[in-house]
Lab assay of single mutants.
Amino acid sequence: MIINNLKLIREKKKISQSELAALLEVSRQTINGIEKNKYNPSLQLALKIAYYLNTPLEDIFQWQ
C-alpha cells in the first residue's frame, strides 16, 4: 500500500487542489482522489507532483 503526504505538503505550501490540478493538467477530482488514497498516481504524474511541489518524491509517497 502506498501512503501519501500530498495533502499535508500541498497545504503547507499554501497551494489549493485546483491550483495544483491546473499546474499538472489534471482535474481537481484527480488530486482529491490521490489525497484520499482512492487510487495511486502513475509514475509520470507522481514525478510531476514532486517537481511542482519542489519536494522529493519519497517525501510525498511512501510504501507501507
Score class of each variant (00 low, 15 high):
N4C: 04
E58R: 10
I60W: 03
M1K: 05
L20A: 02
M1E: 05
Q62W: 06
A46L: 04
Q17C: 06
I9C: 06
L6S: 03
W63Y: 06
Y51S: 11
P56E: 08
L8T: 14
I2C: 08
A50Y: 02
A21I: 02
K14M: 11
S18L: 14
A46H: 02
S42A: 05
R10S: 02
I15E: 01
G33C: 11
L47W: 09
K12M: 13
L45E: 05
I2G: 06
K36T: 15
L24V: 14
I15M: 10
Q64R: 09
Y51T: 13
N37M: 06
L43I: 13
L43V: 13
I9W: 06
L57H: 04
G33Y: 13
L57P: 04
Q64W: 05
S42G: 12
K48Q: 12
A21Y: 02
L24D: 00
I34E: 00
N32W: 11
E35G: 00
L20N: 00
A50R: 03
L6T: 03
N37E: 07
K7R: 13
N5I: 02
L47G: 12
I9V: 13
Y51A: 13
A21W: 02
L24C: 10
K48V: 04
R28L: 15
P41S: 03
F61N: 00
W63I: 05
I2E: 09
E11S: 09
P41D: 01
K36N: 15
S16L: 09
R10P: 00
I49P: 00
D59L: 11
K48C: 09
R28G: 10
R28V: 15
R10Y: 02
E25D: 12
E35A: 01
L45K: 02
E58S: 13
S16F: 04
S27W: 03
Q29M: 13
L47P: 01
Y51R: 10
L23F: 15
K13Y: 07
I60K: 00
L8Y: 12
L45D: 04
E58M: 09
K12F: 09
S18F: 12
K36M: 15
A21G: 07
I49D: 00
P41L: 07
K13F: 07
S42M: 04
E58D: 14
Q44S: 11
L23D: 11
E11H: 08
L43M: 14
L57A: 04
A21T: 03
N4Y: 02
Q62A: 09
Y52I: 15
R28N: 15
Q29S: 11
A21P: 01
K14G: 14
A22E: 14
D59K: 13
K48N: 09
N4S: 04
I9F: 11
E11F: 05
A50L: 02
Q44T: 13
L47N: 15
R28Y: 10
S42D: 15
E58T: 09
K38R: 14
M1S: 06
N4L: 03
Y39I: 15
Q62H: 08
I60H: 01
L53T: 04
T30M: 12
I60N: 00
Q29D: 15
L43P: 15
L6R: 00
Y52D: 02
I3G: 07
I31H: 00
Y39V: 15
L47R: 14
N5P: 01
Y52E: 09
K12P: 02
Q17L: 12
K12H: 13
A22Q: 08
A21K: 02
Y39W: 07
N4H: 03
L53C: 04
L8K: 14
M1A: 06
F61C: 02
L6P: 00
A21C: 06
K36P: 01
L23V: 14
S18G: 15
E25Y: 10
Y51W: 11
R28S: 14
Q62L: 07
I60R: 00
K36C: 13
S16P: 07
L20I: 05
M1D: 04
A21S: 09
L24Y: 00
I15V: 15
I34S: 01
F61L: 03
G33W: 11
D59Y: 08
D59R: 08
S42V: 04
E19L: 09
L53K: 00
A50H: 03
I15S: 03
K14W: 06
Y52W: 12
I31F: 03
E19V: 10
T30H: 10
G33I: 07
E25R: 10
E58W: 08
L57K: 03
A21N: 02
Q17V: 14
L8F: 09
P56M: 04
P56R: 10
F61I: 03
I2R: 08
I3R: 13
L8A: 15
N4E: 01
P41Q: 01
I9N: 04
N40I: 09
N32H: 11
Q17F: 03
N4M: 02
T30S: 07
P56H: 06
Q62C: 08
E25M: 15
K12Q: 15
N4F: 02
N37C: 08
R28C: 09
L24W: 01
L6Q: 03
S18M: 15
E19D: 14
K36I: 14
S18T: 13
R10Q: 01
I2F: 11
L57I: 12
S27Y: 03
K48D: 08
L20K: 01
L43A: 09
I2A: 11
I2W: 08
Y39S: 07
Q62F: 06
N54D: 14
N54S: 11
K12D: 11
N54H: 11
Q44P: 11
E19T: 12
I60F: 03
I49F: 05
N54M: 08
Q29V: 14
K14H: 14
K38D: 14
E58K: 08
L6E: 01
I9R: 04
G33S: 11
L47A: 14
E58V: 08
N4G: 03
I15D: 00
L20G: 00
I60D: 00
S42Q: 06
K13Q: 12
L24S: 08
Y39K: 10
L57N: 02
A21F: 01
W63R: 04
L45T: 06
L53R: 00
L57Y: 06
L45C: 06
S16Y: 04
K12W: 13
N32P: 03
L20E: 00
V26L: 06
Q17W: 03
Y51N: 14
I2T: 13
L53F: 08
M1C: 06
P41W: 03
I34T: 02
Y52H: 12
L24Q: 00
A22R: 13
P56T: 06
I9E: 06
N4I: 02
N5C: 05
I31L: 13
N54K: 12
V26Y: 02
Q62S: 10
I49S: 02
F61S: 01
G33K: 10
I31T: 01
E19Y: 07
G33F: 10
Y52A: 12
E19W: 05
A22W: 06
T55F: 05
S27E: 13
K7F: 08
Y52M: 11
N40C: 08
T30E: 09
